[in-house]
Design a protein around this nucleic acid. Structure first.
Lengths: 346, 346
DNA sequence: GGGTCCCCCTTGATCGATCCAACTGCGCTG
DNA sequence: CAGCGCAGTTGGATCGATCAAGGGGGACCC
């Protein structure tokens, strides 16, 4: 089993194995394994000697062998939906970045696999049965999505980013951001600035996330004794629709501020203001949702609700570790608070 | 070795193995393996019988065991740089999506690992030595970046998205987009629309990518007999700088159009136009680079150069497969042509 | 002196796939 | 009828790690 050490820093044809280290350090394989995984079991001087040999030979445990024996992979699967080019998608990308960071700190890597429209659970099934990943992070848990239910049924460990809105079925663990709290922040911010006629432009009624965000605006308005009649609009999540809705609301209800369910819709409002020669922030205030790049780069900075995606990722990874180590999870769901990033538009 | 088949569609505690399939189908393990990996070696009726058993038991080969034996992982490593929140980053995210799709079709998955600023090759080294990935895709090959050179030296298979600009050192395989061709398209488009005084706002001189894009503008102007004196500006890639540069150029050289090295800078130009009450597209034309979401969502759609990232990803995966199967790669580098997405701003 | 711990380390078996060499029919040839 | 080649199949070894037992030796106690 003797092997040549790495010449220079060149990778050898066959990488160093645990047995190589053992022989060189004059100990058994198990001792080397313990030096890596259970250092407390070794006498300090032995540990030091083995560690030095590991460093000398540039040894890293073979992932495949370890995975085979321990029946784990240190990989977290994430279905990466195809680029749809909207502001919501950009939010997801920011989340993926956070997830990669958080996972790494817990010793996990993130494995991406594509979405297959025809077979929504196909990718999951494959990775699960071939024991390629330890767990999943599920991101699209909107109403009627089969993934979460399917994974639960398979007893596959996973954490969802997003609440199960039809909670009579779902019994899984989740982390989410309180959208209503976000729009409450936004609305209160505008009220504090003296606005009283604050309009809402949101998504269609069948979107639970949209209705949640809408409720934040609604309750805050009412809590402040402000009327909301004629000030709400529900449209498709595209710039064009946002612009139209803003035009109609301006004509019919003369609002002085807009709270939107997304930055995309807020862009639409800004478009209408532009056409009507109204200055955002001075004439009319606008607040968006998601703090997308558009909000940041836009010449007139767009005030927007920002989801704490870094925290979401950390919380998800923390929960995953509990699940994987079969420890009890304190709460089935965790709800995090968003923040308001204030810019020139309000 | 007898195991219970899966009850219903529930995942068993210990998944089905190749030996289970063999026993149930009344053949040897090797025959099952061949049915999966070398179907031609089996008699049609045997193959059919084994395949049916595989389907019945819901068998998928254990990834770890296969990886250990074959010394491959079917994983492609990609360093996922932390979210810097610029338009360039959004471009990378779009590329990752394409890469996941292209990899999947070739039977690979994408493994993300975070960037460590202190040790630029740390993540690579780890994955390489632990044989966790088969190859890498390197995305940040700008001047002076050590990754590519280091990987080459380690004889690690990888393909770069981006040319090695200091090509006296680099000898690796790459795929890139012809930035100069993009700005040529943009400039010619503006010339065709009757513009003669077309300004350039680009990055600082030490960016080879920026200089490449600049050259496309320069050569096209000269090829059409147009002067470029006083029409070029090199600044930081932030909105603010773009706005300033546009203001200076407008005052001093009265251009009627702008070509920018990025959408970020184009946003700055739009900002200045907004302040000066100039209508983009009607009074002054603007072209950006990268076709980011900002360009698409902006009320006045921004004309922008779009990189064919889907094609880049496909080409990268194709090249990787050649590398991994030790087949000769036809060309050390492949240069793809971008397209111009024309919107209202020009 | 001898037994009992405990600490530290070693040995053999194992995870589940693929590689390897050998083995079995079967048809054909000399 | 022995010998040979070919296609299909077989059991055993192997990849490199961890798991589960199994010592050896010193300290300590009776």
């Amino acid at each position: 089993m003797a092997r040549e050490p790495r010449s220079g820093s060149q990778l050898p044809v066959t990488p160093t194995t645990l047995a190589d280290v053992a022989e060189r350090a004059g100990v058994s394989r198990q001792t080397v394994s313990n030096a890596v995984n259970n250092p407390d079991l070794l006498r300090p001087d032995t540990l030091e000697r083995v560690r030095q040999t590991i460093a000398e030979l540039g040894y890293s445990p073979n992932r495949a062998a370890r995975n085979l024996r321990t029946r784990t992979s240190s990989l977290i699967g994430l279905r990466f939906t195809p680029a749809q080019e909207g502001t919501a998608n950009a939010m997801m990308d920011r989340f993926v970045h956070s997830l990669v960071e958080a996972s790494d700190e817990a010793g996990y890597h993130v494995l991406l696999f594509p979405a297959d429209d025809e077979d929504p659970v196909g990718g999951y099934d494959n990775l699960l049965r071939s024991t390629a990943v330890d767990a999943f992070v599920v991101t699209d848990t909107y109403l009627g999505n089969p993934q979460a239910a399917w994974l639960s049924q398979q007893r596959a460990p996973f954490v969802a980013f997003g609440r199960p809105w039809d909670d009579d079925v779902a019994r899984h663990v989740w982390v989410d951001v309180d959208g209503a709290a976000g729009t409450r922040l936004a609305t209160q911010h505008l009220i504090d600035r003296g606005h009283t006629r604050i309009a809402w432009i949101g998504w269609r009624k069948d979107s639970p996330i949209g209705e949640d965000r809408r409720s934040g605006w609604l309750t805050t308005m009412h809590a402040n004794g402000l009327s909301t009649t004629g000030l709400a609009s529900r449209v498709e999540d595209v710039v064009h629709s946002g612009a139209e809705a803003a035009a109609v609301l301006l004509d019919e209800s003369t609002p002085t501020a807009f709270v939107c369910a997304s930055d995309t819709l807020a862009m639409g409002v800004l478009h209408t203001l532009w056409i009507r020669q109204l200055a955002p922030g001075r004439d009319i205030a606008v607040v968006g949702f998601d703090d997308s790049q558009v909000a940041q780069v836009f010449p007139v900075g767009l005030t927007s609700v920002r989801q704490p995606l870094e925290d979401v990722a950390v919380e998800i990874v923390r929960t995953l570790r509990l699940l994987l180590s079969h420890q009890p999870v304190e709460a089935r769901g965790v709800l995090l608070e968003p923040t308001l990033v204030i810019r020139e538009s309000s």
